[in-house]
């Protein structure tokens, strides 16, 4: 038997945080029926906990995919510790547990961001002139990977040449998002939070800081289009499956390296 475990952060305070994990799990069960016998959600701050999720899973082959954007504190420290993982592949109690990389660094992420942009702009009127895509990350000065993943996606989208400008702004590190949005030289600014879930930042702090009035905010010199977080997009379910499939290749790679 094979199981897929999707790990989310979760919240003690509201249901928004875990919702995308449940929704992606449901899509995986539906779209990829037969690939996994069990698809189970677990969380850092909700139940089932990472610590106990393996107790309730029957399969001997388990793949763990973190529904996190960047490689960092959670994916490198908390998740392996709580699940008792030794690395990309763990053999324990007759089980093989494969651990996938986070979603944000995956090569398919730019496609999901661009799908999110398409959803946002559908049926909306753009001003004549330039269009800038601004990726908004949380960022932290404590870990350069947190911001790095946003720059990585911006660069990958820039290479495709579909926008006049692709910029990056953050909540908790430089450059601050408000300065980036004000300063960007484009008539249309498309702002996409590179976050997993809706929450306090996407619903409250970001709209307040940027004085947004909703999905579309008209300013004298530009129109700002504000999208939902990329992590809630239904295509993230496909990203999770791609990450899960990739772990097999990682295992083969490790085996080659050892021999």
């Amino acid at each position: 038997m094979k199981a897929l475990i999707i790990v989310g952060h979760g919240s003690h305070l509201n249901e928004d945080s875990s919702l995308p994990v449940y929704e992606h799990a449901a899509l995986v069960r539906d779209r990829y029926a037969g690939e996994f016998d069990e698809v189970v959600e677990c969380f850092w701050k909700e139940e089932p906990s990472m610590r106990h999720v393996l107790d309730m899973v029957e399969a001997e082959e388990v793949c763990v995919v973190p529904a996190f954007i960047s490689e960092g504190y959670f994916t490198q420290q908390v998740i392996p510790r709580e699940l008792g993982l030794d690395g990309p592949v763990t053999h324990r109690d007759g089980r093989t547990i494969r651990y996938a990389g986070p979603l944000g660094t995956f090569e398919g992420m730019p496609d999901v961001i661009l799908e999110r942009v398409d959803d946002l702009l559908k049926g909306k009127e753009m001003r004549p002139g330039r269009t800038a895509l601004v990726l908004l990350g949380h960022g932290t000065d404590l870990n350069k990977n947190s911001g790095g993943v946003v720059y990585l996606n911006a660069e990958r989208i820039r290479e495709r040449g579909v926008y006049d400008l692709v910029e990056v702004g953050f909540l908790d590190q430089d450059p601050p998002i408000a300065e980036v949005v004000e300063g960007v030289e484009a008539e249309n600014v498309v702002l996409i939070p590179v976050f997993i879930a809706e929450g306090w930042h996407t619903r409250e702090t970001i709209p307040e800081d940027l004085r947004l009035t909703g999905e579309v905010t008209e300013r004298a010199d530009k129109t700002i289009f504000y999208g939902a977080p990329v992590g809630t997009h239904p295509s993230v379910a496909d990203l999770i499956i791609s990450r899960a499939r990739e772990t097999k290749e990682r295992e083969a790679q490790l085996a080659r390296d050892v021999s």
């Binding site: 189970v40 139940e47 089932p48 906990s49 106990h52 999720v53 107790d55 309730m56």
Partner: peptide, 9 residues
């Protein structure tokens, strides 16, 4: 497992 996560196990 939704009503009482990991409770039965």
């Amino acid at each position: 497992n939704y009503l009482y996560p990991s409770g039965v196990a």
